[in-house]
């Protein structure tokens, strides 16, 4: 039993963090360069667990938390799942199918350059081909190009339920990263913003808000590690652990996102400042692969 990253994973994490800082900073999340996707692909992050890669879900989850911290394109989630489980690797848009009814409207993220979309329907992953001229413009989350399929074409389910767990795990990893980003942004601001002749982080009321953010992040990250290792180990409880990770990661991302704005005061509410980017991303992620209560309660058939 070991739930800490090994030296190889730590090295990969550092490399990922460095790359993201230089090439995909959070403060430019709204205007990602057109060539970014090709670079992400070249870094290998679009297909880490593809059959010929031999990397574990745990390693991938660690890297995805780092990517999520920089508000990386959410299409990475769908693309990584497609690379592992479908016959159609390559850029895949992320579809929200949770409450989708046949013939209704489906939201699709990161559609540009993707010839398919993939999402979670029930406990199975399902895909559909995309028209090439779909385009995409940001909705609530300014860092995630969105298009609508209206009416949606039929989606074909992939048989292996592990694909659904994989999708949930990567979404949770993005949310954990998003929660961390909000926590660090709040702590950094609390150290430099001064009121009453001292940094606002000196005041306990703020200190305790920040401490609670750290708790939520640590809780969610720990469960993410466990869930990833459970999927790698073929553990019988893997579905429960992934669902628990998703729920806690969603809560951490949304609550930390909110707290970060409070810590920033007035500037935190502005379009210009960055806190809202984390909050909006958190809300988007909460719809991708929501934790099912019957799974967490151990009642799923």
């Amino acid at each position: 039993m070991d739930l800490t990253p090994d030296t190889e994973q730590l090295a990969l994490l550092t490399a990922t963090a460095d790359w993201c800082r230089d090439n995909m900073p959070l403060d430019q999340a709204r205007a990602r360069p057109a060539g970014l996707w090709a670079e992400l692909d070249a870094m290998g992050w679009t297909a880490m667990t593809a059959p010929d890669m031999g990397l574990t879900h745990a390693t991938e989850a660690l890297v995805f938390a780092e990517l999520g911290r920089h508000l990386a394109p959410v299409g990475l989630i769908a693309t990584a799942v497609a690379a592992r489980w479908s016959e159609h690797p390559g850029k895949t848009a992320l579809a929200l199918l949770d409450s989708h009814v046949a013939g209704g409207r489906v939201r699709v993220y990161d559609p540009v350059g993707a010839d398919r979309a993939l999402g979670l329907a029930g406990h199975l992953v399902a895909t559909t081909p995309l028209p090439s001229d779909l385009g995409g413009a940001p909705g609530l989350d300014p860092s995630a190009p969105l298009a609508h399929l209206d009416p949606a074409p039929p989606f074909t389910a992939l048989g292996d339920p592990r694909a659904g767990l994989h999708l949930q795990l990567l979404t949770a990893a993005f949310a954990v990263g998003c929660a961390d980003a909000a926590r660090d942004m709040a702590a950094d601001y609390a150290k430099v913003r001064e009121q009453f002749d001292r940094p606002i982080g000196w005041f306990q009321a703020l200190k305790h808000i920040c401490a609670d953010m750290a708790v939520r992040s640590a809780v969610a990250r720990s469960q993410l590690y466990y869930a990833a290792a459970a999927l790698d180990a073929g553990d019988a409880e893997a579905a429960f652990h992934a669902a628990a990770a998703m729920r806690l990661a969603d809560q951490a991302a949304i609550e930390n996102g909110r707290a970060n704005i409070q810590v920033h005061g007035g500037i935190g509410m502005t379009d210009e400042a960055y806190p809202h980017l984390c909050l909006k991303r958190a809300h988007l992620l909460s719809f991708v692969a929501p934790a099912r209560r019957d799974i967490i309660l151990g009642e799923a058939a």
Partner: peptide, 11 residues
Amino acid sequence: RDIIAERLLGL
């Protein structure tokens, strides 16, 4: 909470 904020987050 003080300890977490001061030692983990550096406030």
